[in-house]
């Protein structure tokens, strides 16, 4: 497998570096490679260390939540809920478990719960005018093509059953090995591989149909 861009990517803009006046930030280079000391400090309730964790993983969590949730607009709320639960549980975190595997385990739980709740209240209807306003007007043909491709990928992924999609995302997008996903989910590797294959096949079929 080629290298995944799964390691936390930090933006080097000044706004990102100073986003919390009350909580001093780590230098991006330090925060991207979260060391065990940062996590140990966060375990003891150090809010600065926790801020470094949020900075390092927030974008990845949003990406995962948007791909997992039936209502992607809930992604920010779900990620916030995940980090709050993480912070409360941090004192009991055992460092023998990989930190980001634990984080995505909590996030996966939150997303599944949210999807269940959303399904229960799925009588929500989309306001057509509102939906129309959300579609950006793109003049550049290349940008328009990219936008259409992006939408096609998201629509195709949304059609993949949730139980296959989650494993697919954990493995291919977040870069967890099958061994790690097995530890996170309790599902045997053979079953995981089958789920990833089914998700891949479905994604390929939908995209091939749509762009023929």
């Amino acid at each position: 497998m080629t290298e995944h861009p799964s390691t936390p990517v930090r933006r080097n803009d000044s706004a990102s570096r100073q986003f919390l006046s009350g909580f001093p930030l780590q230098h991006p280079a330090q925060a991207s490679g979260l060391d065990s000391r940062t996590i140990s400090r966060a375990k003891l309730g150090d809010i600065d260390a926790f801020t470094a964790i949020v900075e390092a993983y927030h974008a990845r969590c949003i990406r995962f939540a948007r791909a997992m949730l039936r209502n992607p607009d809930d992604a920010e709320d779900m990620v916030q809920e995940t980090f709050v639960r993480l912070y409360r549980a941090l004192p009991r975190y055992e460092e023998r478990q990989r930190f980001e595997a634990w984080l995505f385990q909590i996030l996966g739980n939150c997303c599944r719960t949210a999807n269940t709740a959303f399904q229960r209240h799925s009588s929500r209807t989309t306001n057509d005018e509102e939906a129309y306003e959300r579609v950006p007007s793109i003049d550049d043909p290349a940008a328009q093509f990219d936008h259409e491709w992006s939408e096609a990928v998201r629509r195709a992924l949304a059609e993949v059953p949730e139980y296959n999609r989650e494993i697919f995302l954990l493995h291919y997008i977040e870069g967890f090995s099958y061994e790690e996903v097995e530890r996170m989910t309790g599902i045997k590797q053979s079953a995981l591989k089958m789920r990833v294959k089914r998700a891949s096949d479905m994604l390929r079929t939908r995209l091939s149909e749509g762009h023929r």
Partner: peptide, 21 residues
């Protein structure tokens, strides 16, 4: 396409830290 990270949302991160604290 799916691996593209969303832009850093400073306000959202601030809310996360405040809520957790």
């Amino acid at each position: 396409e799916l691996r593209k990270l969303p832009p850093a949302d400073v306000g959202a991160m601030r809310r996360v830290v405040s809520a957790a604290a």
